[in-house]
Simulated assay, not measured.
Amino acid sequence: MKQEWKELDTPTLLLDKEILLKNICSMSDFANRENVNLRPHIKTHKSVEIAKLQLEHGAIGITTAKLEEAEVMAAAGITDILVAYPVSSPIKVERILSLLNQGVDLKVTVDNLEQVKLLQKALEKTDHTLEVWIKVNSGLNRCGVEPGEEAVGLAKAIILLSRLRIGGIFTHAGHSYGARGEEELERIALAEAAAVVRSAEACENAGIPILVRSVGSTPTYRISGLVEGITEVRPGNAVFFDSIQVGLGVADRSECALTVLASVVGVYEGRIVLDTGSKTLCLDKGAHGLESVKGYGYVLDYPELTIERLSEEHGVAVFKGSCSLRLNDKVRIIPNHACTVANMFDEYVLVEGEYVVDKWKVDARGMRR
Rank of each mutant, 00 (worst) to 15 (best):
A195L: 11
D9Y: 13
I50G: 09
L82M: 11
L123S: 14
C339G: 05
L305P: 10
A84K: 10
E192S: 04
W5V: 01
A59F: 02
E4T: 12
M367H: 14
V48T: 04
S176M: 03
V227K: 02
W133F: 09
A84Q: 12
W5D: 05
F319E: 09
L258I: 03
G270L: 01
H128F: 15
K2C: 00
Y348A: 04
N343E: 09
G167C: 09
S217G: 06
Y348E: 05
E34I: 04
N32L: 04
E182P: 02
H41P: 10
N141T: 14
V116P: 02
G366T: 03
A70H: 02
V104E: 04
N205K: 13
V351A: 09
G353M: 05
Q245H: 10
E146Y: 15
R95W: 13
V349A: 06
T306H: 08
A251Y: 05
D127F: 02
D329H: 07
S278V: 02
I208L: 12
R332C: 14
V197M: 00
E186G: 04
L119S: 11
Y302A: 12
S292H: 05
A364E: 05
I223V: 14
Y85A: 10
T259H: 05
I19S: 08
I81D: 06
Y177K: 01
N237G: 15
G207V: 05
C25R: 12
G321W: 02
L283V: 12
A189L: 12
A193K: 07
L248E: 03
W133A: 03
N343W: 02
S162T: 02
G216C: 01
K2A: 07
M73A: 11
Y85F: 15
A206L: 06
A206R: 07
T340Q: 00
L164G: 14
L190K: 14
I19W: 03
V351Y: 05
P147W: 09
I24D: 03
I188K: 13
S254P: 01
I230G: 05
L8D: 05
I188S: 13
N23C: 09
E313I: 11
K17R: 12
Y177W: 01
N101Q: 15
A76Q: 00
Y348W: 02
V116I: 15
V265H: 03
K320M: 03
L14K: 14
A76V: 00
I50P: 13
I307S: 09
K107G: 07
R39A: 04
V318Y: 00
N35A: 09
H57D: 00
E186W: 13
E312V: 07
V136E: 00
E71S: 08
D16G: 06
I158E: 06
G144C: 05
D127R: 06
G295K: 08
T129P: 04
T12F: 06
E94P: 10
D363H: 10
E186P: 01
G315Y: 12
E149Y: 03
A202V: 07
I334K: 07
E186I: 15
L190S: 03
A202N: 11
D127G: 08
M367W: 14
F30T: 08
T12H: 08
P40H: 00
L140H: 01
T44Q: 06
D252E: 13
N101V: 09
D284I: 00
V83H: 04
A238H: 08
A202D: 10
D127V: 10
S138P: 13
T220A: 07
R39H: 01
N336E: 13
E131G: 10
D301A: 08
C143S: 15
